[in-house]
Design a protein around this nucleic acid. Structure first.
Length: 499
RNA sequence: GAUCGCGUAGCUCAGUUGGCAGAGCAUCUCCCUUUUAAGGAGAGGGUCCUGGGUUCGAGCCCCAGCGCGAUCACCA
C-alpha cells in the first residue's frame, strides 16, 4: 500500500504517542454528560450550568496560538469550540501533554474526550474551557478540510464517487448529509407509528424466495448449498403479506428491502425499500383516504409543514388531493377521450399525440404509454390516478363496474409514481387465469412477466377476505420529502461498481 | 446498453498554441495565551485514471480500456 506523505506523518505520530506511554486506542469508556448542541443552545439560559462538562468527539480544527489554542470538536449533534491553555491541562512542570501531544501529535480527525467548563469568548462564542484532554482514537487518514464563513462553504467535499464509496467521510465533513439521513429515519418512524396506531402489525417475510412474485421485474438469483436449491431475492413481498391476511391478520405491513436486476439511474438502485400494507375488508377508496392521511401526517412530522419545496416546485401534501381516473386524466391533459376506443383506435390516438409505440402493444399497454408520455410528468402536486387497464395489473381485482379495468390507484407526485395500490384480487380462479396470461407473455419473451405461484393460489383457495393493499417506494418518497435529486442521496451506500 | 461530459497533490480546483507540474486549504519546521475560512515566516508533497500511439517533446492530440456523472433506453 502506497502511503501519502500525510499518512506517513500520522503513523509516525502514532508511534510517538505510544512512546509517550499513551494508548492511542484505549479500551475504557469515556462517559459523556452533554452534547455540543445542548451546551451551545442552552448556555445563555442557564448561566451556571455546564461547569463540569465531559464531552467527546472528533477534532475538526486546530488554531494554535503559542501557549493557548482553540479547537473545534464535532460530536453526533454538532460542533463546539474548545479553548485549551497549556498551563491548565499541564499544571506541573511537564508540559508535554500540550506541547507534544496536543500541538504536534493530535491531528484533525482524531477522536478525543475533554473535561472542562463552558464559557463565552470575547467574540461571543460559547466554548469549552478544557481542563483535561484524552485521546480516544487516533486517525491515520487526512480528512477533507471544509471551511465555512458567513454561511458560505469553501472547499466542500463534493466528488460524488468518493462521497458514495466512502460515505463515512461524507457524513463526517458534510453535516447536511447527516441531516438527510436523520430525516429519512424520521419519515419511516412516522409511517411506522401511523400504521401501528391504526392497529396494524409490522411483520417480516422472506427475502430468499423459491418463486419470486408480486411485481413485474427481473430478479437476482442465488443458490442455497444445503438444500441445493435455486432462490431468488424478492422483487416484492406482496404475495407473502397476502398469505398473512389469509391467515387471519386484519392489517399487516413491512418495510422491505426489495431487489430488482435492472438498470440503474437516479431513480433506480438494484436494492431499494418498499413499504407494503394490506388491510382486510377494505378497498382502494378506503386506501386512498388512508394513504392521503398518512402522507400528510408524515410530511408534518418530517418538515413541520404540509408544504415542501422540492427543487423548483412547492409541493403541498395537505388533503384532499386531486383524483382522476386514468381515462379522465388523459382527457384532461390531452383532450382525447379514449375510454370507448378499441385497440386500433387507441393506436391512432397514440400516433396523433406522437407517443412512441410498438406493434405488439395491446390496448392496455397503449393507454399506459399515452398516460406515461403525456400526463405523468405534468402531475407535480400529489394526484390519485385510478382505474388501470387489466392487462397491466394481474394481482388487482376487476373493476366493480368498468369492463377491462381493475381497482387500482397510483399516486403521482413531482412527475413520478409514489405508490401503487389495489383492491386485491381474491378470486382464486381469476387469479389463476391472470397468472396463466402472464406465463404466455413470458413465453413470448417478456422477461418481466410474472411466474405462477401455486402455493399462493393454494392460500387464496382457502379464502382471502376482500383486502386493500398498497406498496410505497420509500426511497422515492424520501427523495421528495427531503428534496434530494438522486436516489443515491437518500441511500447510505448506493450500489457502485466494484473497483 | 447508447450518447455526451469529467478524471491533475489528502480535499477543492487552475493549467494558455503541445515546450521545466501550479494555487488555496491541509501537511512539515519556527513564532504567537481569546482565535474562528486565525495570523506571520519558511519547507516538503504528483502513477496528471490505466495502456498504447503520434511527436524532437504529451496533463493537453489520436486509439483502446477503467471509474464517475448527466441524458436516453430499460424500469408497473
Amino acid at each position: 500500500m502506497q502511503l501519502s506523505e500525510q499518512e506517513i506523518v500520522r503513523r509516525e505520530a502514532l508511534q510517538k504517542i505510544i512512546d509517550m506511554g499513551i494508548n492511542p486506542y484505549p479500551a475504557e469508556a469515556f462517559s459523556v454528560n452533554y452534547t455540543s448542541t445542548e451546551i451551545v443552545e442552552n448556555y445563555e439560559l442557564s448561566e451556571n450550568n455546564f461547569q463540569d462538562v465531559h464531552i467527546a468527539g472528533r477534532l475538526m480544527m486546530k488554531r494554535i496560538m503559542g501557549k493557548a489554542s482553540f479547537a473545534e470538536l464535532q460530536d453526533a449533534h454538532g460542533k463546539i469550540q474548545l479553548y485549551i491553555a497549556r498551563d491548565e491541562i499541564c499544571p506541573g512542570e511537564d508540559k508535554s501533554l500540550y506541547n507534544d501531544l496536543f500541538k504536534k501529535l493530535l491531528d484533525i480527525g482524531d477522536i478525543i474526550g475533554v473535561k472542562g467548563h463552558a464559557f463565552v469568548t470575547k467574540t461571543g462564542q460559547t466554548s469549552i474551557h478544557v481542563e483535561e484532554l484524552k485521546l480516544l482514537s487516533k486517525s491515520l487518514k487526512p480528512l477533507p478540510i471544509v471551511k465555512e464563513k458567513d454561511g458560505e462553504v469553501y472547499d466542500a467535499f463534493t466528488d460524488p464517487e468518493l462521497r458514495y464509496r466512502q460515505r463515512y467521510v461524507d457524513l463526517i465533513v458534510n453535516p447536511e448529509v447527516r441531516k438527510v439521513f436523520e430525516m429519512r429515519s424520521k419519515l419511516t418512524n412516522a409511517m411506522r407509528s401511523f400504521m401501528t396506531d391504526s392497529g396494524y402489525l409490522e411483520v417480516e417475510t422472506p427475502v430468499l424466495q423459491p418463486i419470486y412474485g408480486g411485481a413485474a421485474a427481473r430478479p437476482f438469483t442465488t443458490h442455497h448449498n444445503t438444500l441445493d436449491q435455486k432462490f431468488y431475492l424478492r422483487i416484492a413481498n406482496e404475495l407473502y403479506l397476502k398469505r398473512l391476511i389469509v391467515g387471519g391478520f386484519d392489517g399487516v405491513f413491512e418495510f422491505a428491502k426489495d431487489f430488482r436486476n435492472e438498470g440503474m439511474s437516479r431513480f433506480h438502485n438494484p436494492e431499494f425499500t418498499m413499504m407494503e400494507l394490506y388491510v382486510a375488508y377494505k378497498d382502494i377508496y378506503w386506501m386512498m383516504d388512508y394513504f392521503e392521511e398518512m402522507v400528510e401526517y408524515v410530511a408534518q412530522a418530517v418538515s413541520g409543514s404540509t408544504e415542501i419545496q422540492v427543487g423548483e416546485n412547492l409541493i403541498n401534501f395537505k388533503r384532499p388531493w386531486k383524483r382522476y381516473t386514468m381515462y379522465g386524466a388523459i382527457k384532461e391533459f390531452t383532450g382525447e377521450d379514449v375510454s370507448t376506443l378499441d385497440e386500433a383506435g387507441m393506436r391512432a390516438v397514440a400516433k396523433k399525440l406522437h407517443v412512441p409505440i410498438e406493434e405488439n402493444m395491446g390496448r392496455g399497454k397503449l393507454i399506459d404509454e399515452i398516460f406515461g408520455e403525456k400526463v405523468e410528468s405534468l402531475l407535480i402536486q400529489p394526484t390519485f390516478i385510478t382505474d388501470y387497464p387489466i392487462e397491466m395489473s394481474p394481482l388487482a381485482k376487476k373493476h366493480r363496474s368498468e369492463e377491462g379495468l381493475v381497482e387500482r390507484f397510483e399516486v403521482i407526485c413531482n412527475g413520478k409514481e409514489l405508490c401503487n395500490a389495489f383492491s386485491e384480487l381474491n378470486d382464486p380462479i381469476d387469479q389463476r387465469e391472470r397468472f396463466e396470461k402472464q406465463i404466455e407473455l413470458g413465453k413470448r419473451g417478456d422477461e418481466e412477466a410474472m411466474v405462477l405461484d401455486e402455493d399462493f393460489l393454494n392460500a387464496l383457495e382457502y379464502g382471502m377476505p376482500p383486502t386493500a393493499g398498497i406498496g410505497v417506494g420509500i426511497d422515492r418518497l424520501a427523495m421528495i420529502m427531503l428534496n434530494q435529486n438522486s436516489i443515491q442521496d437518500v441511500l447510505f451506500f448506493p450500489q457502485m461498481r466494484n473497483v
